[in-house]
Design a protein around this nucleic acid. Structure first.
Lengths: 341, 341
DNA sequence: GTGAAAGCGCTAACAT
DNA sequence: ATGTTAGCGCTTTCAC
């Protein structure tokens, strides 16, 4: 069922039907009602492609996920984020166009999207410090929202971010409250903006307690399980081992936990681990499970908010730039280690 | 730069330029060369939307991911699968349209896609026994490939699947070879086709060794960490505990490993765990890491194969139905437990 | 308040 | 081998 058929059916012109369906003010309320009902009854649904051709708008949002040429691992937070954003798009009749592109071709992909107007806007994932994508998109005139921040000129572009530094500061403070004095940081790659902020929060908490950051118990790398295991193992084996860990990402934490299981228990120590995790499902445990304490933020929620912000901007409801800083939640689990630590 | 402009620039008609660019046989080789070069020089790229309108084909593949109304968790294998498929689409100039829809609206989504011809084909994820989506898509005439199988009439539709029963049979046999006689199964929800097959493989291995399946050491549930932990804990605490586990999914295995750490070691036992995992990155460990033994299959690879099969079918290169059964790889890690078990 | 007609960028008959 | 024309399904002037 297309516009023409629907119009014939109603004995109206395509124009009027189109106007009725798109909330143009000039159509008679009675007519509009009749049209809307007929549309639903025949479950008419407009052809987004034709609509896009006619209006120059695509009713689609692009997500460009760079695939590293080094390794094919996909950051698991993408899935949650995409799920959140996707629901918003569905609800607003927009399509989500996902492009998995080798990181070298990312710029070309954006240029292409802009040239062909195949999307109305894009979400930028995983910003780094001084991320070149921001000025590129500005130059291309493609509306965008960054999930995270790219270091500087924060108020010049739209973003939704978690307060990463605060999260890590609170996590570290919590460990101090438990009595720990030697707290390790197992962080992500610090050329990623979020990781840099996490370190800053950690360092600030140390400073507040009169401690200088000690490189011997600070690590930064890609957040794999192996990395967590190796990092924790080497730190635990050192002469002045930590009694607690602040860890970025659940996957890394799994490695850390294993190292503690292997070594920490053998050492007769009680060791605290506090995790920052973005994927709620991983930590959704029943009450009799000894989960670790975590600072958690819902990347699913962030996805929804990013999508809403972008649609809002595209529809011209709010003037950009818009910024949104989310706080995360401290979830205290069973295995925080004893207060005597 | 659009077709018209390019055509004017070359002093040719739009038609000829279009034909040259789309490999129509009738155009003069010299002309084609000239056109192709001019297109690249002006980096012309066709408007997929207009192309779709004109041809009735959309140059897009749909992935419908049902979001459970119960819980918002997203199966992490989607991310890997989507990444694999996405690369194939990019390489073939197709868009990937991702719809995250509440599971109740799934049928409506498919009907809509078919009515509006917004995609040329779809991938069906997570098939169940007698999955209604298959007959629905057949009825709608929308080409599709199923990732997995839906129980019956396997040769009637296109699918790419891992040999799940064989995988679990081999895993179980491997544990028998190590000397185990009491082997537990921690499986996914058995209304999912893959989980049913996994149990069958497990049971077959038991039978081959003269053992009847014992419900006391077989579990089936949604594959969370909590479930793994609870399942393993209760089985280990029973009067006749298992000495080895065959586990579906890495996440569940994390729970199982934790239960073994908590209980198994206290019992002074050496316990083997063998995991089926689809997300390669989780198990990508360095050589000095004591990984657990795993039967692993690359869902990333499966994604690529599904996408290739679907494009091939759409382009009419091979007559459907097409089926592809992949074997998984047995990776023997460090912690398989001693042969004396 | 409603309709006729042009046009978005492309492809596909149908000429020539 | 190339060009002319119509049309995909919609929106948007412009007229009435």
């Amino acid at each position: 069922m297309n516009l023409k058929e629907l119009a014939n059916l109603l004995g109206l012109s395509q124009t009027t039907v189109s106007r009725a369906l798109n909330d143009y003010p000039e159509v008679n309320e009675a007519t509009r009602k009749r049209v809307v009902e007929a549309a639903r009854a025949n479950n008419y649904s407009p052809n987004n492609r034709a609509k896009g051709l006619a209006t120059g708008r695509s009713m689609a949002i692009g997500h460009v996920i760079p695939i590293s040429t080094q390794h094919e691992i996909v950051n698991p937070i993408f899935a949650d984020f995409i799920a959140g954003a996707g629901q918003v798009y569905s609800a607003n009749n927009h399509d989500m166009l996902l492009s998995m592109v080798p990181d070298l071709e990312e710029e070309a992909t954006y240029r292409n999207m802009a040239a062909r107007r195949s999307v109305d806007g894009v979400i930028v994932h995983g910003p780094r410090a001084h991320d070149p994508r921001i000025s590129l998109l500005d130059e291309l005139g493609l509306p965008f929202v960054v999930h995270g921040r790219a270091g500087q000129n924060e108020s010049d572009y739209n973003w939704v971010d978690v307060n990463n530094s605060r999260s890590f500061q609170r996590a570290t403070n919590f460990l101090f409250d438990l009595g720990h004095r030697r707290i390790a940081l197992v962080n992500g790659l610090e050329d990623m903006d979020f990781a840099r902020r996490r370190r800053e929060g950690y360092v600030e908490a140390l400073r507040d307690h009169g401690l200088a950051p000690d490189p011997a118990i600070m690590r930064s790398s890609e957040m794999t399980e192996e990395y967590g295991w190796k990092a924790a193992r080497s730190m635990l084996a050192s002469t002045n081992p930590p009694t607690a860990f602040v860890v970025s990402s659940m996957l890394t934490a799994i490695g850390v936990r294993r190292a503690i299981g292997d070594i920490g228990q053998r050492m007769g120590r009680d060791i605290s681990v506090i995790i920052h995790d973005d994927v709620l499902s991983y930590l959704r445990n029943g009450d009799d499970i000894p989960i670790f304490t975590a600072v958690r933020s819902s990347v699913h929620h962030a996805g929804r908010l990013c999508a809403e912000m972008l649609l809002d901007i595209i529809q011209g409801h709010t003037p950009p730039p818009r910024n949104l800083l989310l706080e995360s939640e401290l979830v205290v689990g069973g295995s925080t280690g004893p207060l005597r630590a």
